[in-house]
Amino acid sequence: MDHGEVTRDGLDVAWVTSHGAAAAWQYALSVQAALDDMEAACIEEDWQVCVESCAMALRAILLCRRLARGLDGPLDDMEFQYVLATSAEPAAVALRDLPWSTESGEQEARTGMAAVAQHDAALRAELPFDVPVTRTPTGVRQAMRISATLVQWRRERSLPDARWRQDGL
C-alpha cells in the first residue's frame, strides 16, 4: 500500500512527516519555482522559455512523486535522466511529449502549460498538506509553522529527526 494514499484507515503519520513532507518541501523548492518561471515567460510571450519552464516543472513533479514514494537520497544525474526517459508516470510521459523548445511557439507553450497544470493539480492532491508559497514572507512563516509541527509529531513518536532535501533540482 502507498502510505500517501488516503484510505478509510487514514494517512500514516510516519509517512506524512518523512516522505510526504519531503515531497511537499521539494514541491516548494522546485515545482513552485518552475511554475513562476512558466507564468513569467508566458506573460512576456517568451514561448521557448515557457516550454523550457514546463519541462522543469514536469521533471520536478516527477521528483516529488519519487520522494513521496520514499526514493530519497542523493540525486544522481544519469539515474534520474533514465527515469525521466522510461517512467510510465503521467508527468514523465508529458515531459517526453513536449516539443523541442527552439521550435516552439505560443500553441506548443500553451499545450505544455495545460499539461503542467493537470499534473501539478494531481500532485498537490496527493501531498499531505497545502504547501505555502515559500518565496513570500507569509509563506515562509507558514512553512516554519508546518515544519515545527512535523518535527513535534516525530518527537512525540520517538522518531528520529527527518532529513528533508534542502536543494531543488
Binding site: 518561471d37 515567460a41 517568451d46 521557448q48 522559455v49 523550457e52 519552464s53 519541462a55 522543469m56 523541442w100 523548445s101 527552439t102 521550435e103
Partner: peptide, 18 residues
C-alpha cells in the same frame, strides 16, 4: 538555469535543431 538555454544559444548565434 536550464530554461535559459534557447536564449543563450540564440544570442550566441548557435543553431539548435533537435
Amino acid at each position: 538555469g536550464d530554461k535559459w538555454l534557447p536564449v543563450r544559444a540564440r544570442r550566441l548565434g548557435l543553431s539548435a535543431t533537435p
